[in-house]
Amino acid sequence: MKFTIDRYQKILIFIIAAYCAFVGFVNPAFFSITTVFDIIRTSSTSLIFAIGLLVVMISGGIDVSFMAIALFGSYTTINIMIAYGIDNLAFAVGLSIIFGAVLGLINASLINWLKLPPFIITLGTQNLFHGIMTTFVSDKSFGAGVLPPCLNQFGRATLFQIQTGSGTIGLSASILPVVFVALATWGLINFTMIGRGIVAVGNDEESARRIGFSPARIRYYVYVWSGILAGLTGIVYVAQINALYPNKLIGGELPIVAAVVIGGAKITGGDGKVFGAILGVLLIYLLNSTLILIGLSSSWNDLFIGSVLVASIATSSYQERIRNRKNLIFTD
């Protein structure tokens, strides 16, 4: 399978490019390497979240607990590190990922067992995970001073630096996990049997079962993968903001869902591309951060994002409906 850009992605690229051109026209300062590096740095956590969620959505599920998992993983890990004086980035990432995997496993088990809409179940576990963490781990905030220094080092690390008129600007190392996760997930979906199983189950569970895939097992892979990515993102996030709070991230799930949907993933499953999800996040991110540059207050963010989301849902659902009706398939 070659990497291809489909028609929908072309439209997204066109919209993003047109919007950038407009912003740059109104405010030429937008066109700078600083902007690009800035976008990369600040959108990195959203990108990893979105890629994790994409895998879940391709399998026909949904997850709104990934922020809670990210918080649980990173907060608990760093608490342990502070308590035992550990200062090792690999340890932080490793342990947070393990927490993420375990929580993902819990999600998958509940979905497999209860056979209820994953939205409701993961909404429950979102609160459960966050509640367990704040009740049994801790609910204190930690400032930069007490955090293991390795985190901040990673948060500030740059791959290379460029001299610009207003000083030096570097490409954040946060891009590394994003690139790694994007490639790994793309590879997982497109080149592994598990990945094809995920697509198969998302398309049609019964047919997937007939050719020997186990939907229940596939769901374990999917939610564990999503949990692992969330665990990783948690650490990246803390490293970037250089502080640890017990109540951050939570509540930011739905914009990520929106980004993945705008990126072309079907909530009914079976379809969705990593590159699409990245474009979706970028579009939302641009709308979120650049309105000020064109003279609108940031209060207009949601209006723009909501409109784009509704338009994207309406067109893609309507096309699907027309195609189904043409084949005399009725879904509602």
């Binding site: 949904i62 739905l254 869902v257 909530i267 949601d302 209006l303 989301l309 509704v310 849902i313």
Partner: peptide, 10 residues
């Protein structure tokens, strides 16, 4: 689910 997510934000 997804439609009302859109209108929620809108």
């Amino acid at each position: 689910l997804i439609a009302s997510l859109g209108t929620m934000i809108l």
